[in-house]
Every structure is written in C-alpha cells, then in structure tokens.
C-alpha cells in the first residue's frame, strides 16, 4: 500500500474527450502517475464498482468526474464517489455546467426516445419498442439505468469541491489544477481552477477590437472569410469570449474560430447565456423595434449558441417540461 494520494476518474454522460484530455497530458501523465495512485478509471483500468464500495469514506483524495448526470447509474456512481472522496472535482464542461449533452434539456425523455427509436429515418421499429429498465426473460433479468428527463450538472447532484473547466480542458489547465490540488495549498471550496477573468484579457486580437463596437449584422463562421488578425466579434461572429472565463490560451481564436463558451462564466455571473445576451444586444446598432428584430434575426439559435455548454447550469436549467392539459 503506497502513501500516494488516491485518485479516481469517472465518466458520466460524456463524449470521452475529457478522458482523452488526461491522456493528452503526454509526458506529463508520467508525473501524474508518479504522484498519485489511480484506484478507479473505467476507461483505462480494470477496477470495479465493488472496489470503490469497499473503500472507507474519504479514502480517495480526489475524484475527477466528467460528464453530466443523465441516468440513474450515473447518479448512483457520483454519490458513491462523493462519499468515498475527500474532494470531488468536476472535470470538463459537462460536469461543470451540463455540457453539450445538456442541450437535451430542450426535450424530455419521451420526445428523445420517440425520435431515436421511432421517428428517425433509418430506424425500423414497427412495434415501437423503447428501452426499459428491467427485462425478464426465461428467468434471466437485465437492468438498464433509468433515463432522466433532465440532464444535470455534477453540482446539482453532489457537492463539488473544485472545477476544471473546458470542453475538453487543455493539458496545461489540467496539470496546473492537479499541481494545485497536490500542493496542499487548497483554494476555497467551489473554486473553478482557472483565472476568474473573461477570455478577452488574454486574447491575441484584443487590440484590434474597436472601443465603440456596434453590430448591424451577425454572421456565422461559414458566411465570412474570417480575417485572422481581427477580433471575431468585430467581424460579426458570435464570439462568447467576453462572457467566458479565460485561461484556455484562446486556442479557438488562434484557430480562427469564435469562442463558444466552454469554460463557463466568471464567478460574478449567475447565467452565462443571459449575460452574453445582455452584452451583445447592447452593441446592436438599432433603436427601433423593426431594425432590432431584423438584426437579431441573424442569430438563428440563441439557446444553442449562448447555452451550448451551460443549459443545465443556467438559471432556468431547461426548457419547460410539457404541461399536462
């Protein structure tokens, strides 16, 4: 038994990108492996759930959980890890805010199942069978996790101690965060482990952004030949940089694409989408309703754009559930 701090990794409703991000630490992963003892990592190692259940409460130093909570199994696992861990770290946008799976909160389970298992063009399911939680056949029993109507971020299920943001977090963000946690000099509980300032501060194009920017049309990236030197918002693209925490090195901007908001808002904001809406509408170059509507019509999908990663974590959490007649 080593005395290295024990860490666990788990994935909920996620794409696997956060797991890749850990692997992307490349050489640095050896430093991580040297500094900690990994006791649970379904994607990469063979530990079982029962191994975790057998641990003492608080035996795990830190559990790095990525993905949103979407099924009963995920809820059970995160509760289990919470009980067994001193610190729970929400890893990546899905755990932090709900992430892209969170956009499923525009629908409910019924609608999703009907679309996936009945209505989609290549599905052949004449008996309209949906997945159910228990199936018995010939004395055998199979259980599937329950599928919630509402996707939740990790902190909506268990108490979260720290957040490593991003979709997926960058290698240096991860290694800095892990180093902080291992240093013993722990920041206050609830801290997001990147600077608490919006992306524009570190953006290489900030000098090209006009001081009195006004917008008379919004563009989507495929509609313009994007100038590689000029601020993207100034070119009419919906760059969420002003409303998004920095610390990512502005990699998307360096790739000539607008920020989509994956690091979430600063700590002084309750709803990232709402704040971004406030900021860009303030810049719209119109004072009468008709022109305002015309300009805003060039934003095709406000929810998808402003809450790409953060719908569950927003103030309203989801589209209203269908109201029974």
């Amino acid at each position: 038994m080593s005395d290295k701090p024990k860490v666990a990794f788990y994935w909920c409703a996620s794409c696997g990108g956060c797991e890749e991000a850990v692997v992307d630490l490349a050489e640095k992963i050896l430093d991580v492996a040297a500094a900690v003892e990994i006791v649970f990592w379904p994607v990469a190692m063979d530990f079982k759930r029962a191994d975790v259940e057998a641990m003492e409460d608080g035996e795990i130093f830190a559990a790095f959980i990525n993905g949103a909570v979407r099924t009963t199994e995920q809820e059970e696992m995160v509760r289990l890890l919470r009980a067994k861990s001193q610190a729970v770290v929400a890893f990546g946008s899905c755990a932090h805010l709900g992430g892209i799976p969170g956009l499923a909160n525009l629908w409910d389970r019924e609608t999703i199942f009907r679309t996936v298992y009945e209505d989609s063009p290549t599905t052949d399911n004449p008996d309209r069978i949906h997945p159910l939680q228990r199936y018995r056949d010939n004395g055998h029993e199979v259980e599937l996790p329950g599928f919630f109507d509402t996707v939740r971020s990790l902190d909506q299920v268990v108490e979260v101690d720290y957040v490593i943001p991003g979709c997926a977090p960058m290698p240096d963000v991860i290694s800095n965060a892990v180093a902080t946690l291992l240093s013993g000099d722990l920041p206050p509980a609830g801290t997001v482990l990147t600077p608490d300032v919006a992306l524009c501060e570190g953006c290489p194009r900030i000098d090209s952004k006009p001081e009195h920017l006004t917008i008379s049309e919004f563009k989507r990236p495929h509609e313009v030949l994007v100038d590689e030197e000029v601020c993207l918002l100034a070119q009419g693209l919906l760059c969420l940089g002003p409303a998004t925490r920095g610390g990512c090195g502005a990699v998307c901007i360096e790739g000539n694409m607008p920020c989509t908001g994956c690091f979430g808002p600063t700590s002084h904001v309750r709803d990232q989408g709402g704040k971004y809406l406030a900021a860009i509408t303030s810049l719209v170059d119109a004072d009468d309703p008709e022109t305002i509507e015309r300009i805003l019509a060039s934003i095709p999908d406000p929810v998808g754009t402003f809450y790409r990663y953060g719908l569950p974590g927003s103030l309203l959490h989801r589209k209203r559930m269908p109201v029974d007649a």
Partner: peptide, 13 residues
C-alpha cells in the same frame, strides 16, 4: 479592475 477583462463592451454604452 481585477475582474475586468478589458473586453471593451461597456466603452461605447
């Protein structure tokens, strides 16, 4: 000031 990112959104308002 520590919280300001210099995003310039406010300057023209």
């Amino acid at each position: 000031a520590e919280e300001c990112s210099g995003c310039k959104t406010c300057l023209g308002l």
